[in-house]
Amino acid sequence: MQAQRSSSAAYAEIAIEALIRLCGFSAILFVFAIFFFVFWSGADFIIHRLDLVQFLGSEQWYPTSISNKRYGTLALLAGTASVTTLAMLIAVPLGLGAAVFISEFTSGWVKESLKVVIELLAAIPSVVWGFIGIAIMNPVIIKLFDAPIGLNVLNGGIILGLMSVPIIVSIGEDALKAVPDSYREASIAMGATRWQTVYKVLFPAARSGLLAAVLLGVARAIGETIAVLMATGHAVQIPHSPLDSVRTLTATIAAELGETARGSDHYQALFAIGVLLFFLTFCVNLIADLLVRESKRK
C-alpha cells in the first residue's frame, strides 16, 4: 500500500529548499553588495585623496573648479538637515496626531477609509510631489512671502513633511495598537477621559514604538531625492531662513552624476556622498529597528 515517493521528487525538494534558503539570505547579500559597489566605485578617491576634515567640515563644494577644487559637504549636510528638520516639524505632529485619531477615536468604516487615504498619500510618486513643488507651491510661496524664488527650504520641507506623514502614521498606529486593551479599559473604567488615557497611559506605554515611527520618518526625509531636487532650488549654501534655496546630499548626486566624467574625482566624490548617506540612513534605521523590537517585547 505504501507508495514510495520517487527519488527525483526528493531531489527536486532538496533543490527548491536550497533555493528558498538562498533567497532568504539574499537581502543580506544585497545590502552588502550595495555598500560594496558604492564604496568600490569611489574607492580610489575615498582612500587616497579624500580629506575627511574638508569633506565633513567645509562648506565649499567646488567639484568643477579648475584651480580650486573643493569637496566639502557641510553646506549639503546643512541643506539636508534644514529640509529634514522643517519636514519633521510638520510631519511629526500631523503624523502622530493622525495615528492617535485613527487608532483611538475612530472605528469601522471611518477607520478603514482613513487608512486607505493614508495609503494613497504614500503612493504618490516622489516626482509628482516634486512637480507639485515646482508648479503649485512655488508661485504660492512667492506670492505669500514676497520671496524672489519659491523653490527653497520651506517648499521642500512642506513637500517632504507630507511625504513622511504616511510612514509615521502607519508605524505609529502599529505602536498604539500594540498596547494591550486592558490598559485602556482600566484607565477608562477609573473615570479618565479618552484623551487623558491617550497622553497619560498610551503615550508612555507606546513610547519606543512612536519614537521609531518618527525616526523612520526622518530616514525617509533624509533619503528622498527627486522631490527635494525639484523643490528646494539649486543653491549650495548653509540656509539662514526657510526662504533660502538649498541643495541636499541626495539632490547633489542626482543633479551632478550625469554631468561628470566616469572615474573622475568629482564622480567618485559623489559615490563618497553615497557612502555617507548609506551610513546615515543605516544608523537611523538600525536605531528605529531596535526601538520597534523593544516595543514588541513589552
Binding site: L216, A219, E224, T225, I253, T281, F282
Partner: peptide, 18 residues
Amino acid sequence: VNLAGVPSIVHALFGVGA
C-alpha cells in the same frame, strides 16, 4: 529594513556601479 531604508539615489549609485 535597511534595503527599504537606503535612499533611492544610493540604489541608483549601486545600479551604476554593479
